[in-house]
């Protein structure tokens, strides 16, 4: 028995969400009295960092056939590692890659899957994992009843401090068959972290009146080291790119800090952001529903409040750096 963690890469490096997944998996390994092995598929030059987060072994499938992402090929690599390691618990990050392969791995192993887990499994009576359901309006505790168990972890859910170990790295050459998906082109929209992994987010809504007014939002985000987001009407009107749309039908996020400027706080918007740890609402209508979900609120005109907040943030940065 062991725990296998799929460690995602980006541009030939271990991705931040993979460190969290490895820290999560190795804690489960400790609780279950076993070891954590990580598998890395594709080119990567810093696989040894995974040891610092608790993996004792890293399997590196580094062959040209893994250069482009084909979910069925990657699935076969992971299930081959499950077999080689005798793994019973398989961990993914619930990100773009994890969403494409964790369910395939579960189907191939005929294993139960909890996707988007937000906490460590409870092991006292079976294997029960907590996840957000109803778009963040509730949680469900889900018990996996099969021998093999697959869990994908929602980014930014558990502590990911290095524990200071080291891992042995082995080359892994599984049989995976031919690719069925050919990558034609990759269009980079930004080099920033995806919204789902940002720890701070500054978001604005229809209260900002038009796309020409987003300068101050971007400046504030920059001063705070935050990503930018928006409400649905804002992206529907093409004031902002679609990937910034958060909410029930957009991206669901749970940053440590979410600042909402000129957003009313409709239930569908809240569904995507109400798991944020600290919420700040800036709105000129004291009756805006968003204040009910806020930790901090400022009733005022965004065009006056945001520039002042930007100055305060800059002064804070100057004093603290």
């Amino acid at each position: 028995m062991s725990i296998l963690i799929y460690a995602n890469t980006a541009n030939g490096k271990i991705h931040k969400s993979a460190l969290e997944a490895v820290a999560y998996g190795s804690k489960i390994a400790t609780d279950m009295g076993t070891n954590a092995t990580a598998i890395v598929v594709g080119a990567c030059d810093d696989t040894d960092t995974l040891g610092e987060y608790g993996a004792t072994k890293v399997l590196h499938a580094n062959d040209a056939k893994f250069n482009s992402f084909d979910p069925s090929v990657y699935t076969k690599a992971v299930t081959a590692a499950v077999e080689a390691e005798g793994a019973d618990v398989i961990i993914f990050s619930h990100d773009f890659t994890g969403k494409a392969i964790a369910p395939r791995v579960a189907a191939r192993l005929d294993a139960g899957l909890v996707s988007g887990a937000v906490d460590y499994p409870k092991l006292d009576s079976g294997f029960t994992v907590r996840k957000a359901v109803f778009s963040g309006k509730a949680f469900a505790n889900i018990t996996i009843n099969t021998d093999k168990k697959v869990v994908s972890l929602l980014p930014n859910s558990v502590d990911k401090a290095p524990v200071g170990g080291s891992a042995t790295v082995e080359t892994f050459s599984p049989e995976v068959g031919a690719a069925s998906v050919t990558v034609k082109e990759i269009i980079k929209e930004s080099t920033d972290l995806p919204l789902t992994e940002a720890e701070k987010v500054v978001s604005a809504g229809r209260g900002l009146k038009g796309p020409e007014n987003w300068g101050m939002v971007e400046d504030l985000a920059k001063a705070l080291g935050a990503a930018t987001a928006c409400s649905r009407p804002v992206s529907d009107m093409d004031w902002r790119p679609h990937h910034e749309h958060v909410g029930q039908t957009g991206v669901a996020i749970r940053p440590n800090l979410y600042i909402a400027i000129g957003i009313s706080g409709a239930i569908q918007h809240l569904a995507g952001v109400n798991q944020s740890k600290t919420i700040v609402v800036i709105n000129n209508d004291a009756e805006a529903p968003f204040f009910k979900s806020a930790n901090y609120g400022i009733v005022g005109d965004a065009f006056e409040v945001v520039p002042k907040l930007l100055e305060a943030a800059k002064a804070f940065n100057a004093a603290n750096n």
Binding site: G112, K137, N141, I142, T143
Partner: peptide, 14 residues
């Protein structure tokens, strides 16, 4: 099915 929902919880009130 291979999983069962043991219980639901509402998030703690803000």
């Amino acid at each position: 099915a291979s999983t069962t929902i043991s219980s639901y919880e509402l998030p703690p009130a803000k």
